[in-house]
């Protein structure tokens, strides 16, 4: 829902705090997750992620979450799925060239990034999406990577 999506961007700072809290929790229970097995957790994690991130961010389950670098505005909602900034077609009122009823996700991203500690991560160049990750849990992938490090 767009209204919720816009709300999440307005509360990007709070969203990030929730994320960090979840992060700490997951890191703490990592040994437990390992016992259960990451492979077995994939489906339930993805299901929870789909519902929660779907509600707050209109998440499309690309499998490579960059919300923290885009001011909590999901770039997959851009009709061109641009992950590095807006296209040149943004309308003067900040809406999308292809969907006049929708605020440009990158205008939103800039707004959200201004409310985030570390919002300058919006300037990081994002690599092209790995389409094999679609539908998978981005949380689990990141957690796995972090716990391994």
């Amino acid at each position: 829902m767009r209204v919720v999506r816009y709300w999440s961007v307005s509360h990007a700072g709070a969203m990030q705090r929730v994320y960090r809290a979840l992060d700490r929790l997951f890191i703490r229970i990592d040994p437990l997750l390992r016992v259960v097995g990451y492979q077995r957790l994939e489906a339930p994690f993805a299901a929870v992620e789909r519902v929660l991130k779907g509600w707050f961010f209109d998440c499309r389950m690309c499998g490579h979450c960059v919300l923290q670098s885009t001011g909590m505005s999901c770039p997959m909602n851009c009709p061109k799925q641009l992950r590095n900034g807006p296209c040149g077609g943004v309308r003067a009122d900040g809406t999308c060239e292809l969907d006049p009823g929708m605020r440009c996700v990158w205008v939103e991203a800039v707004r959200g990034a201004a409310r985030l500690p570390g919002g300058e991560r919006i300037e990081v160049i994002q690599v092209p999406l790995d389409h094999r990750l679609a539908g998978q849990s981005a949380w689990l992938a990141e957690l796995r990577q972090r716990a391994a490090a």
């Binding site: 061109k80 799925q81 994002q126 690599v127």
Partner: peptide, 27 residues
């Protein structure tokens, strides 16, 4: 990046957008 298919003469076409202009430059 390119204009969206909706504005052109084949609005039924599949938009690809596998890359964006910045990713393409890098490649």
């Amino acid at each position: 990046t390119g204009d969206g298919v909706a504005v052109g003469d084949h609005p039924a076409a599949k938009p690809v957008f596998d890359l964006d202009a910045i990713a393409l430059l890098g490649i």
